[in-house]
Amino acid sequence: MNIGIIGAGQIGSALAVRLTSLGHQVYIANSRGPETLTDVAQKTGATAVTAQQAAQRGTDLLVVTIPLEKIPALPKDLFAGVPADVPIIDTSNYYPLLRDGHIPELETGDLTESGWVQQHLGRPVVKVFNNILAAHLEHNGKPAGTPGRIALPVASDDAAAKQKVLQLVEELGFDALDGGTMRESWRQQPGGPIYCNDLPADQVQQHLARLGTARTPEQHAEFLANQAQQEQAMQAQGIKLK
């Protein structure tokens, strides 16, 4: 496939390494220009391009993997001319303390994180790869049937795009699970039991079933509180996301 990746941070680079190793043609971009991606291109095997070129050349699949706070700054015409059947993956997470500041719609629970991204991009997205560490994404994929194989939920309102991404997740070495619609994607957000815990399929399915589909105010408050604790712990360790 021809795959465009917009964002050359940890997740974007990890995906580029794995996807090129599987024989896909990968075009990777950041906000500073391809001339700043020489090292990334050498490490990953991807071709460094501009964001607009990544969007146009990723004719089979696009990945947006930039900090949530940067989503509104993407060019408004970035996906102009991109066919509607090209899946757009969103990997973002909301970190109000360490990076993104407070976004009212995400604080009130009116939108899921990728629902907010979807509004800004003006295109349906597929939420995946947000709940696994980059190093684990790059190195911990296993053949199908391996005991303890990590499972990754995939959420979207676009059934065809979701199916294509489910197949890609399997190809990368993870059990792909249907995470439901975009409104149900809160279940894989930070602060919840599925987030960055590298769980096998049966445990992820149990958590999805236990959480239900419609997020309650109590669940939203619980996730936010858990996320705040995690961010405070990261801050105490000197971890910075900017």
Rank of each mutant, 00 (worst) to 15 (best):
Gly33Ala: 06
Ser31Ala: 11
Val63Thr: 11
Gln52Met: 01
Thr50Lys: 07
Val49Asn: 03
Thr44Met: 10
Gln56Leu: 08
Gly58Tyr: 03
Ala55Phe: 00
Thr50Ser: 15
Gln52Trp: 03
Ser31Glu: 07
Val63Asn: 12
Arg57Asp: 07
Glu35Arg: 10
Lys43Ser: 09
Glu35His: 09
Leu62Gly: 11
Gly58Glu: 01
Gln53Trp: 09
Ala48Glu: 04
Ala51Ser: 08
Gly33Cys: 02
Val49Phe: 03
Lys43Thr: 13
Thr38Val: 15
Ala54Gln: 03
Val63Met: 12
Gln56Asp: 05
Thr38Arg: 14
Asp60Lys: 01
Ala51Asn: 08
Glu35Ile: 09
Ala54His: 06
Thr59Pro: 11
Gln56Lys: 09
Thr50Tyr: 11
Ala48Tyr: 03
Gln53Leu: 11
Val49Ala: 01
Val40Trp: 13
Thr38Trp: 14
Ala51Leu: 07
Ala51Tyr: 07
Asp39Ala: 15
Arg57Asn: 07
Ala48Ile: 02
Leu37Val: 09
Ala46Ser: 12
Gln42Arg: 15
Ala51Gly: 06
Gly58Pro: 04
Glu35Asp: 15
Thr44Tyr: 14
Ala46Ile: 08
Val63Asp: 12
Ala48Met: 07
Thr38Tyr: 14
Gln42Gly: 12
Thr59Gln: 06
Asp60Arg: 00
Arg32Gly: 06
Arg57Cys: 04
Pro34Glu: 04
Thr44Ile: 14
Glu35Trp: 03
Ala51Trp: 04
Thr38Gly: 10
Ala54Glu: 06
Asp60Leu: 00
Ala54Pro: 05
Gln42Ala: 15
Gly45Val: 10
Thr38Phe: 12
Ala46Met: 11
Gln56Glu: 10
Val49Thr: 00
Val40Ile: 15
Gln42Glu: 15
Leu61Thr: 14
Thr44Val: 11
Asp60Ala: 07
Gly45Leu: 15
Thr36Glu: 02
Ala41Thr: 00
Gly33Thr: 01
Pro34Gly: 02
Gln56Ile: 01
Gln56Met: 02
Thr36Lys: 06
Asp39Gly: 09
Thr59Val: 11
Leu62Ala: 11
Thr44Arg: 08
Arg32Tyr: 06
Gln52Asp: 07
Ala51Ile: 06
Val63Ile: 15
Asp60Glu: 12
Gln53Gly: 09
Thr47Ser: 07
Leu62Thr: 08
Ala55Trp: 01
Val49His: 01
Ala41Trp: 00
Leu61Met: 15
Pro34His: 04
Arg57Gly: 01
Asp60Ile: 02
Val40Gly: 13
Lys43His: 10
Thr47Tyr: 03
Lys43Asn: 10
Thr59Asp: 05
Thr47Gln: 09
Val63Glu: 10
Leu37Asn: 06
Gly45Asp: 13
Ala55Lys: 02
Thr36Arg: 06
Asp39Trp: 13
Thr47Ile: 06
Arg32Asp: 10
Arg57Ser: 07
Pro34Lys: 04
Thr36Ala: 06
Ala41Met: 02
Ala46Leu: 01
Thr38Lys: 14
Val63Gln: 11
Leu62Met: 12
Gln52Cys: 02
Thr38Ala: 15
Val40Gln: 14
Glu35Cys: 05
Val49Gln: 00
Val63Leu: 14
Thr44Pro: 05
Thr47Ala: 02
Gly33Trp: 01
Gln56Cys: 00
Ala46His: 08
Ala46Lys: 12
Arg32Asn: 09
Arg57Ile: 00
Pro34Phe: 10
Pro34Asn: 03
